[in-house]
Design a protein around this nucleic acid. Structure first.
Lengths: 211, 211
DNA sequence: GTGGTTCCTGACCGTATGGTCAAGTTCAGG
DNA sequence: CCTGAACTTGACCATACGGTCAGGAACCAC
C-alpha cells in the first residue's frame, strides 16, 4: 500500500487544503456573490469546519481576493496566443478559442470576475489600473499594426477588445440563460463548436480579417 | 401658489414613493448584489425610514423582484424596433442602438439583471422559460427569414442574438472596467457614438448585412 | 522519546440584518 | 367637523453572520 491514500507531506497537505477551499469558494462566490456567500456554506462545500477556513484565509475578503487573482492569471495566460500569432485571423481566432474554452471550463471563475467588476472592483481596482491597462495597451498596439499592414479593416481596437471579452465571457456569465433557452440543457460539444465558429466568423469577417 | 410643491393626491404619492424606493433599490442592488444590499442602505439612499420600505414592499425579495421585472420590461420594449424593421441592416442596427442606449441610461438595471442571471435566476426563472424563450423564438424566425431572402449570411440566429446581448450589455455591466481603461473617466458622447458605430459595423459586416 | 511547531475544531461572541409592531399622523369622504 | 382607512416611523426582536480562541491532535526534527 505504500502511501496511496495519505501520500502527503505537510506542505503538500497545506497546498491541497488551500486548493480545496479556493475551489469551493469559487463556486459559492459565483453562485451567491460576495455578499450572499457565507463562510459556513463554503466550508460545507469544501467539507471542512468553518474555523479551518479562517486558519488558511484569515478573512472572507482575503479568500475572495485570492479567488479573483487566480482567475485573472488564467485569463492573462490565455492571451499569450494573441502575441504568438502572425496575423489577425490567426491571433484573434485563437484568442476567441482560448477564451471560449475558459468560459466552458471555468464558468464560476468568470462569474466571480464579472461580479467583482460590476461592483466597481473593490478589491482588484489596482489590477485594472496596472496589469490590465498595460496588457490592453500592448494588444491595441498589435491590432494597430495589423491595421497599418492592411491585414484588417480600420477598427477601433478598444471596442474590438471589448467585443471579444463580452462575447466570450457571455457564454460563462450568462450560461444559465443560454442553457434555459437551450431547453434547460447545457450546450453539448457540437453546440460549443457552433458557438465558437459563429463568434469567430462574425467577428473575423466583421473586421475584414477573413473573406 | 396653488398646489405646486405638494400637488399630490394619495395615489400619486404612493406611486412616487414606490418609484423612489425602486430607483434607490436598483442602485443599491446593482452596486452590492442582492446579498450585499441592505434594506437600511436602500432606505438611506431613498431618504426614507427603513420601516417605510417594508410598508410598500413586505420583503427584500419582493422589492428585488419588482426591480428585475422593471428592467425586463424596458428590454422587451427596446426589442420592438427589431420587428418594425424591413431588413437586417435596419433591424439589427436599430436594436444595437436601442440596447446601447439602455446600457448608457440604465446601467444599474442591466447589472441587476446580469447578477440575477449569473446567480441562476432564482426569482425570474419563469420569465426566462416563458416570455424570454418566446421572444427569442420570434426573433429567430425573423432572422431565418432574412437569411432565406438572402439579405444576410447564414448565421446561427441564437449565437447572433447572444452576441448582440453580450456586446451591448457589456458597456453597462463592465462599465467600470471600461471607464478605468479610459483613464478613469466615463465615455463621453463621441466615445459612445464610436462604440455604437464599431459594434454595428463589425456585426453587420460580420453577418453580411452590410457591404 | 520529546519538545516545539503546525494544524484542526467546537464553542463562543459582538454585530448587523431582515422583519415586526404598536402608537401615532395624515387625509379623503360624508 | 368626524371617522375610518391609509400611511409613517422609532423601537424592538430573533437570527445569522464573520471572526476569535483555547485546547487538543498530528507531525517533524533531533
Amino acid at each position: 500500500m505504500a502511501q496511496s491514500s495519505k501520500p502527503n507531506s505537510k506542505k503538500e497537505r497545506r497546498q491541497e487544503s488551500e486548493k480545496l477551499i479556493l475551489s469551493a469558494a469559487e463556486k459559492v462566490f459565483a453562485e451567491a456573490g460576495f455578499g450572499g456567500a457565507t463562510m459556513q456554506l463554503i466550508a460545507d462545500v469544501a467539507g471542512l469546519p468553518k474555523a479551518n477556513l479562517h486558519y488558511y484565509f484569515p478573512t472572507k475578503e482575503s479568500l475572495y481576493r485570492q479567488v479573483v487573482q487566480n482567475i485573472f492569471q488564467i485569463w492573462l495566460q490565455a492571451a499569450d496566443v494573441f502575441d504568438a500569432a502572425d496575423g489577425p485571423e490567426e491571433g484573434i481566432g485563437a484568442y476567441i478559442d482560448a477564451k471560449m474554452e475558459i468560459s466552458r471550463r471555468h464558468p464560476a471563475g468568470s462569474k466571480v470576475w464579472a461580479s467583482e467588476v460590476m461592483h466597481r472592483a473593490p478589491v482588484i481596482q489596482d489590477y485594472l489600473e496596472t496589469t490590465l491597462a498595460e496588457w490592453t495597451e500592448g494588444r491595441i498596439a498589435v491590432i494597430e499594426r495589423w491595421i497599418e499592414e492592411g491585414r484588417m479593416d480600420p477598427i477601433d481596437p478598444r471596442h474590438l477588445l471589448y467585443m471579444l471579452w463580452a462575447t466570450t465571457q457571455h457564454y460563462a456569465d450568462f450560461g444559465h440563460q443560454i442553457d434555459t433557452l437551450n431547453g434547460g440543457a447545457p450546450l453539448n460539444d457540437a453546440q460549443w463548436n457552433a458557438a465558437k465558429a459563429s463568434v469567430k466568423r462574425i467577428i473575423l469577417r466583421g473586421i475584414g480579417a477573413q473573406t
